[in-house]
Computed example of a mutant assay.
Amino acid sequence: MLNIRQAEADDADAIWSIIEPIIRTGEVYTLPREMSRHEALAYWFAPAHRAFVAEDDSGIVGTYYLRANQAGGGSHVANCGYATVAWATGRGVARAMCEHSLEHARSRGFRAMQFNFVIRTNDRAVRLWQRCGFAIVGTLPKAFLHPQAGYVDAYVMFREL
């Protein structure tokens, strides 16, 4: 059974253990690969972000943050960032967090959700977001420097709530 709850300061070590390898590989996030623990957690727990964790009997297996995608006239559109522990890949954690984020965003009055920069080579994420109702509404040609694949496209993905 997966429980998703708002993250607390005591969750910082678990969140760092999930996001550090993702940051270091540089394959799916635009965060600097050399980002420190302090910088990464400050980003994840930024005042404009509401951070969550997904936990099961083994502990915290995923995390995400929710925020307004833009300020002012764009503040009705939500944005999220998701991360799961590597061994939980394919076990429905990301899907559960996405569904939770959509429900939570709707309850906070957001009218849509947008992912600004989904890396084309992140096939699992692209397929999952599409199964969750997101459409690719734009392609940013060669916008991301992937450490193995070189310059690759990034997608803008969107869905109404």
Rank of each mutant, 00 (worst) to 15 (best):
I60T: 11
I136D: 13
I19A: 06
V156I: 15
D11H: 09
A48K: 13
N69Q: 08
R5P: 11
D13E: 15
G73E: 06
I19H: 06
I60R: 00
P141K: 13
K142E: 15
Q70D: 03
F45Q: 02
G90A: 07
R111I: 05
G150E: 08
Y82I: 03
S75H: 11
R106G: 12
F45W: 05
A83Q: 07
A68P: 10
W16T: 09
G150Q: 08
Q148V: 10
N116T: 08
E160N: 09
I18C: 05
A40F: 02
L2C: 07
R127L: 06
A48T: 07
A154R: 01
Q70V: 01
L66Q: 05
R67P: 02
I119P: 07
V85P: 00
D56K: 03
E55T: 06
T121N: 05
D153H: 09
L102E: 12
A68T: 01
L102P: 00
G73F: 04
L2A: 05
L66R: 04
Q6D: 04
R106W: 04
A94W: 03
P32T: 10
V137P: 00
A143W: 03
R127E: 12
I4L: 06
V152S: 12
G59H: 05
A112M: 03
R95L: 01
R50D: 03
R95H: 08
C98T: 14
A88F: 02
T121H: 02
V126R: 02
G92L: 08
I136V: 15
N116E: 10
E20H: 08
Y155N: 14
V156A: 14
A149W: 09
D11Y: 04
L145I: 00
T84F: 04
D123H: 10
R37E: 12
A96N: 05
I60Y: 01
Y29S: 15
A154V: 06
P21L: 01
G59V: 09
W129D: 08
R33L: 01
C98A: 11
E55H: 02
A7I: 10
G92K: 12
V156T: 14
G81T: 15
Y29V: 14
A14T: 06
A112W: 04
W87T: 06
L66M: 09
A14V: 05
L128D: 13
Y155L: 13
P21K: 06
T63H: 05
L102F: 06
Y155I: 13
H146W: 07
A68F: 02
